[in-house]
């Protein structure tokens, strides 16, 4: 069973989400099955058209697009959180799957963790 890495913090205002992505990348580097779940304010990672040149940070939109290349299994987004932040499905990348973050979802994974 795969590990679920959960990101519930929005990008740019803090580093925890980036460090969660690094955890997912490193599991993938060792061929350990891993998926990502975006929930709460974390769904703001999934908005398209992020232009970060003014804040001198790397674009998490571009960083996250490497996840499927590295073999991260699923990129999940909590449906209610997406509604709350006005992120509609057409705006989500093809690789992102809408889901309901609940006990049934958690039961599909052997472990679940935040980066901080």
């Amino acid at each position: 069973m795969a590990m679920l890495i959960i990101i519930d913090q929005p990008p740019y205002g803090g580093w925890t989400g980036r460090e969660a992505l690094d955890m997912a990348f490193s599991l993938a580097a060792f061929d350990q099955p891993v998926s990502l779940l975006f929930i709460g304010a974390g769904v703001n990672w999934l908005r398209t058209g992020q232009n970060t040149s003014g804040i001198e940070q790397k674009s998490v939109e571009k960083n996250l697009a490497a996840a499927p290349v590295f073999g991260i299994e699923d990129i999940l987004a909590d449906r209610i959180s997406c509604e709350r932040y006005g992120i509609a499905p057409p705006e989500l990348a093809d690789s992102v799957v809408l889901t309901d973050a609940n006990a049934e979802l958690l039961a599909q994974y052997s472990q679940a963790a935040f980066a901080g």
């Binding site: 690094d22 955890m23 490193s26 599991l27 350990q32 963790a113 935040f114 901080g116």
Partner: peptide, 21 residues
């Protein structure tokens, strides 16, 4: 050391526990 240490601990241990702020 790198995150590989975490991955290895994760595989070898019965439980991995996280202590967050």
């Amino acid at each position: 050391a790198g995150l590989g240490e975490w991955v290895e601990g994760n595989i070898k241990s019965s439980r991995t526990l996280y202590f967050h702020g």
